[in-house]
């Protein structure tokens, strides 16, 4: 059933089906070089050097996802935020603006329910729901499976809506081109400092629900200043998913990234041909 795999948990569901737990060995894992210090009798204690990053396996899956995406010229964007910042609303608007120009697919991550995937499918694009159960983030292995099930088109866009959580999705590379962090103005200016890992991991920040600014004492400039302390090269766009302001700039950003993905694909093909 699984072509790539290693890990996974029996709490994870992809479109309602259990993502199997894999107990098989991973020959590729032999990369980690282990030196046996004093290999003598089996029952005698010995020291084993191992030097293995805890997330090494996730990073390998991420790399294979990235390779697949590059070969097919697919732009994968990983949308991360706290719960309720407006990711799904924003995705629906984004799909409406782009779906006549480009093929789009969406992977939805939530602990429970497939409501967000249903909201996406209502636009006509295909969406796959991953339910992580108790898990608080998506990992690269789940995404690899989801990508196999989605039959992705060449030169398309694959959006991932991560589990609403400003903490741990920052630590998991899924193989995406960029993490896009969404912060809504009702959450407070201090979030970039309180959850710096996420704002550092992202390349773009969408400041959402800007239509509500007249009713709040939210200081936009201070938020931007905080975000730039954590990540000086973070690009920031102010948007309102419900009113549509700022959406054209976000769409332009995406289109530009799609061109980059196409260029990467061409390079990839050339290097395969010459190599």
């Amino acid at each position: 059933m699984c072509a790539t795999c290693g890990c996974g948990t029996d709490q994870v569901h992809v479109d309602g089906k259990i993502l199997h737990h894999h107990d098989h060995d991973h020959p590729e894992d032999a990369h980690a070089h282990m030196h046996v210090h004093c290999a003598s009798d089996m029952n005698v204690s010995r020291r084993v050097k191992i030097e293995r990053a805890i997330l090494a396996q996730n990073d390998r899956y991420a790399q294979s996802n990235r390779q697949f995406l590059a070969e097919h010229g697919i732009l994968m964007l990983n949308l991360v935020s706290s719960p309720g910042s407006g990711k799904t609303t924003l995705l629906v608007e984004t799909i409406r603006a782009l779906q006549n120009a480009l093929p789009i697919a969406v992977i939805e991550g939530d602990q429970q329910t497939d409501q967000d995937a249903a909201r996406i499918r209502a636009t006509g694009v295909s969406a796959l729901q991953i339910n992580t159960g108790k898990g608080c983030h998506l990992d690269a292995h789940m995404i690899g499976h989801a990508m196999q099930q989605l039959t992705l088109q060449e030169n398309s866009i694959l959006f991932i809506e991560n589990v609403g959580n400003l903490v741990c999705p920052a630590g998991f590379d899924l193989g995406e081109a960029h993490k896009v962090v969404i912060l809504s103005v009702t959450e407070g200016e201090d979030k970039p400092l309180k959850y710096p890992d996420m704002f550092r991991a992202a390349d773009l920040m969408l400041l959402n629900k800007c239509d509500l600014l007249p009713y709040l004492s939210f200081d936009v400039n201070r938020t931007i200043e905080y975000a730039h302390r954590v990540n000086p090269s973070l690009h920031i766009i102010q948007v309102s998913a419900t009113q549509g302001t700022g959406i054209p700039e976000w769409i332009n950003w995406i289109r530009n990234e799609c061109r980059q993905a196409a260029i990467t694909q061409v390079k990839n093909v050339h290097s395969l041909q010459s190599g």
Binding site: C7, R52, A56, Q57, G135, C136, A170
Partner: peptide, 16 residues
């Protein structure tokens, strides 16, 4: 963050 899943990754490394 997700320390339980990090612990699971550690166990996988150890079992391998």
């Amino acid at each position: 963050m997700h320390e339980l899943s990090l612990a699971e990754s550690m166990l996988q490394i150890i079992e391998d």
